[in-house]
């Protein structure tokens, strides 16, 4: 009985984190962008500092009519947002936030689990893009697929490098073996992983597939109301998952400097929040990459860098063992 209760508690905690953290990132994005770009709009709603902007957005999305285009494939069209969002919920279950048992569920092949399930989320964009019966959506879907195919590989290779360093593919195992000098050792892999992750989430500067000014939001053109909000939520959940994963794989997760181990989960949250801030920062400061530049970056820069990192990891591993 206690086992069942334990599992229920853990799943409930993960679910609450899944509901709260993406919204926190969304609100932070409003505020950070407002400050960095001198935008006045998001600073008005509700009075002090525009605190109610996110609530207003939520009410707006819920009120709007949920339209399905006449020529669309109804079932696939309506299913797509769920396919885009749910994988991130599953991934959150496996991310450890603190030492010991502070994880939703211990997964033996954790690294593979999170990368595999994250890759499924892109199917949502593809389904939405195709089912909309709109050529811009279809083009957006195509670009999404091409981008995923290009960036999945460097992401996997960078994660494999960490797994080699730790000698395990379990996320908790990787954190248990973490040493501070892994940070400089794996720094190239960390950059590759984070960049490829941004591209997989289609965040700026890699947002060519969903660029609003060029391809009118790509796969999401025909979506309105709550289903569109679900796609947006998937993006923010993706940011949380990507930053959490980068923290766990490369930044030592719950390990803090000066050995303050008791507040492990706080370190994880802090590092994740810092990375999420960087994601938002990149959005407001970098111009969008063109489609061919996007592909070129993945195949000619990131993959060789990831392979070099794996070679370095292998050499160091052999030398020190």
């Amino acid at each position: 009985m206690t086992d069942v209760l334990d599992v229920v508690w853990r799943l409930l905690a993960v679910f609450v984190a899944f509901l709260v953290l993406p919204l926190v990132v969304g609100q932070t994005e409003h505020k950070v962008m407002a400050h960095m770009q001198g935008r006045l709009g998001p600073m008005r709603a509700g009075g002090f500092h525009g605190w109610a902007q996110l609530v207003a957005d939520g009410v707006k999305f819920a009120q709007k009519e949920d339209v399905v285009p006449a020529g669309a494939d109804r079932k696939v069209f309506q299913l797509a947002p769920a396919v885009a969002l749910l994988p991130y919920l599953l991934v959150l279950v496996a991310i450890p936030v603190g030492p010991g048992d502070a994880v939703g569920q211990h997964v033996d092949a954790g690294v593979f689990f999170v990368l595999a399930v994250m890759g499924v989320g892109v199917l949502g964009s593809l389904m939405g893009g195709w089912a909309s019966a709109n050529k811009f959506s279809l083009l957006g879907g195509l670009r999404t697929a091409a981008q995923l195919l290009a960036y999945e590989l460097p992401m996997l290779l960078a994660a494999a490098s960490v797994a080699m360093a730790a000698g395990t593919v379990s996320l908790t195992g990787i954190l248990d073996g973490f040493q501070w000098w892994w940070l400089p050792w794996q720094i190239v892999g960390a950059l590759v992983f984070f960049t490829a992750g941004l591209a997989e989430l289609q965040r700026p500067p890699f947002d060519m597939p969903v660029a609003d000014s060029e391809i009118i939001f790509g796969a999401y053109t025909e979506y309105t109301g709550i289903r569109f909000a679900l796609f947006l939520l998937a993006e923010y959940a993706g940011i949380v998952v990507l930053c959490g994963l980068t923290t766990v794989l490369f930044l030592g997760g719950w390990h803090g400097p000066a050995g303050i181990e008791g507040l492990g989960w706080l370190w994880t949250l802090l590092k994740t929040a810092l990375l999420a801030f960087v994601v938002i920062w990149l959005r407001v400061s970098y111009p969008r990459l063109r489609e061919d530049q996007l592909q070129k970056l993945a195949w000619t820069v990131l993959i060789p860098l990831a392979l070099a990192q794996i070679a370095l990891t292998g050499v160091v591993k052999v030398v020190i063992s």
Partner: peptide, 17 residues
């Protein structure tokens, strides 16, 4: 997980592409 990663995540995406 490798099945999900390779077949669902990559082969199907390639197929849809």
């Amino acid at each position: 997980w490798v099945q999900v990663l390779i077949y669902v995540g990559s082969v199907i995406v390639l197929l849809l592409f």
